[in-house]
Simulated scan of single mutants.
Amino acid sequence: MKKLLVLGVGNILMMDEGAGVHAIYEFWKEKESFNETLVDFIDGGTFTQDIFYLFEEYEQVLVLDIVRAGHKPGTIYSLDEDDLVKNEKQMLSLHDVDLLDSLGMAEMRGHRPTLKVVGIEPAKIDWGTEMTPVLVKAFPAFMEVARKHIEKLLN
Rank of each mutant, 00 (worst) to 15 (best):
V117C: 10
K2Y: 13
L4F: 08
V134Y: 11
Q60S: 10
R109L: 15
H95N: 11
A146S: 13
M15I: 01
V136W: 14
Q49A: 12
M15D: 02
I150H: 06
D16L: 07
L103E: 13
G70C: 03
I24M: 07
G45T: 12
V145K: 10
E57R: 09
V145P: 03
V117P: 13
E81M: 08
K137G: 07
P113F: 07
V39C: 13
M15L: 02
N155K: 12
G70S: 05
L103W: 10
G128Y: 04
E107Q: 11
M108T: 15
K72N: 06
K2S: 11
A123D: 12
I51C: 05
K137R: 15
V136D: 15
T37H: 15
L135I: 14
I66H: 04
R112C: 13
E56I: 00
E121F: 02
G128P: 08
E151P: 00
L99D: 13
K86P: 00
L103R: 07
T132F: 04
V67E: 06
N155M: 09
V9A: 15
F55A: 02
M105Q: 07
G110T: 06
K137L: 09
G44P: 08
K124G: 00
N11V: 09
W127E: 06
V136P: 01
D126R: 00
L92N: 12
R147L: 10
D80L: 13
F139A: 01
T114M: 11
D83L: 06
G110L: 07
T129K: 13
I125T: 14
L5E: 08
A106D: 01
D50Q: 09
L100K: 01
Y53M: 10
K31S: 12
E151D: 11
T129I: 11
G44Y: 06
V117A: 06
K31R: 14
G44C: 05
N35A: 11
L99V: 12
F55T: 07
A123F: 10
M143T: 04
E36Y: 03
E59I: 06
G128E: 04
G44N: 10
V63I: 05
L153D: 05
W127G: 03
A106Y: 08
K31N: 08
V118E: 05
V67N: 01
I12A: 06
K152Y: 04
Q60E: 09
K86D: 09
E59S: 08
E107N: 12
H22G: 01
G44A: 05
E121A: 00
M143W: 08
H111N: 15
I76N: 05
G44E: 04
V118H: 04
Y25T: 02
D16I: 01
D101V: 07
F41G: 00
G110H: 02
I150N: 00
I12V: 15
D83R: 03
Q90S: 04
T37G: 14
S33H: 15
M105A: 12
V136Y: 15
L94T: 14
I66K: 02
V6F: 11
Y25L: 04
